Amino acid sequence: GPGLTDLFKTEKAAVKKMAKAIMADPSKADDVYQKWADKGYTLTQLSDFLKSKTRGKYDRVYNGYMTYR
């Protein structure tokens, strides 16, 4: 089956995709945050998933999740 690194890459891609969806349409934020909360994502995990070469690119999404939880 898929190894943990593959799983991480898949999760990371999914999280980034959802983060971009929030940035494009902030009204989606609560739905996405709820999904992440259901998956039990911690802020540390989210921070790892949303690492970007562009500093602060996903800060709004991260901060939103922090206040959501």
Rank of each mutant, 00 (worst) to 15 (best):
F8T: 08
T54G: 07
K17T: 07
L43A: 07
V32Y: 06
G3L: 12
G64C: 04
A29D: 02
R60T: 13
R55A: 12
L4W: 11
R55Q: 14
D30S: 10
L50M: 03
V32H: 04
F8Q: 09
L50G: 01
K16A: 04
D48I: 15
Y58V: 02
D31L: 10
K28P: 01
K53T: 10
D6T: 07
R55Y: 10
P2Q: 13
T44D: 13
P26T: 05
V32P: 01
G56V: 04
D59W: 14
A14Y: 11
K9T: 05
D38V: 09
Q45S: 05
T5Q: 12
Y68R: 02
L43C: 09
Q34S: 11
G1W: 08
Y41P: 00
L43S: 07
T42V: 02
M18I: 03
A37I: 12
G40N: 07
T42D: 05
A19L: 02
L4N: 10
V15F: 03
G64R: 03
V61L: 03
P2R: 07
V61D: 01
D25Q: 04
P26F: 08
Y68N: 02
K53Q: 09
Y68A: 02
K16Q: 11
L7Q: 15
F49S: 02
K35E: 14
D38P: 00
A21K: 08
L50D: 00
K9Y: 09
L7D: 15
T54M: 06
Q45W: 03
G64S: 03
M18A: 13
S27M: 07
M18L: 07
D31V: 11
D6I: 08
G1P: 12
Y58W: 09
L4C: 15
Y58T: 01
P26A: 06
M66C: 11
A13Q: 10
T67M: 15
K20R: 14
M66Q: 13
A37T: 09
K28S: 07
D6W: 04
S52I: 10
T67Y: 14
R60M: 13
M66D: 07
Y62F: 15
V61N: 00
L7W: 15
D6N: 08
M18T: 03
D6E: 10
G56A: 05
D38I: 10
Q45K: 07
K12H: 05
T10Q: 14
T10D: 11
D59M: 08
A37Q: 08
D48T: 15
G3S: 14
D25G: 02
K20C: 07
K57N: 05
N63W: 15
N63K: 15
Y68D: 01
N63F: 15
D25E: 06
Q34N: 06
S47Y: 12
A24R: 14
G40L: 04
M23C: 05
S47T: 11
G56H: 09
G1R: 08
R69F: 09
R69L: 15
G40A: 04
M66P: 02
K39Y: 09
G56Y: 06
